[in-house]
């Protein structure tokens, strides 16, 4: 079998900090090795989950837009929301998912700004739903930080 990426990254993190850093004399180099090691530790987690959290985020935003399209009164925004809600996820490469995530996030900003300006009860509920999404999305993206005791 081949070791998976997470195992390799965590292994490299240990090697960098345990075997390589102690043999460096320059303080600046040691600091950089420490940072790079920590980022390898994070990459181990990110590699495994990157596509999953982006697909989940994009699906949540499309669902939000589908719901919002029936509520907002601005015709131009309504059309954009409906169009985005009906899109399907294509390639699962992280770069492709990021590009779609960025487009959806831009529309989310537009929707949230629109909703904040309304006193209607649908706006209150929609604003709460947008925040539920943003809190969940930011929590999902939480990166692990190794503990050094």
């Amino acid at each position: 079998m081949k070791p998976d990426v997470g195992t390799v990254m965590q292994g490299f993190f240990g090697t960098l900090l345990g075997d390589i850093a102690p043999h460096l004399n320059a303080e600046y180099s040691m600091g950089n090795v420490g940072i790079m090691g920590m980022m390898m530790f994070m990459t181990a987690e990110e590699y495994d989950r990157a596509a999953d959290i982006r697909v989940a985020e994009n699906a949540e935003m499309r669902s939000l837009f589908s719901h919002a399209a029936a509520l907002v009164t601005d015709d131009a925004l309504k059309k954009k929301l409906a169009a985005a809600a009906s899109e399907k996820e294509g390639s699962l490469r992280v770069t492709a998912l990021n590009a779609r995530n960025a487009a959806l996030a831009a529309l989310l900003i537009e929707l949230q700004t629109h909703v904040e300006a309304s006193d209607a009860s649908w706006a209150r509920n929609l604003e709460a739903r947008i925040w539920d999404h943003l809190v969940a999305a930011t929590e999902r993206r939480k990166l692990p930080l190794p503990s050094f005791g």
Binding site: N32, I35, M38, M39, M42, T138, E139, R141
Partner: peptide, 18 residues
Amino acid sequence: RDPVLAFSSWYCTDVHNR
């Protein structure tokens, strides 16, 4: 290309967004 910039961008952005 100072690694601390990449670290700040990854880790600190996520914390402050959260």
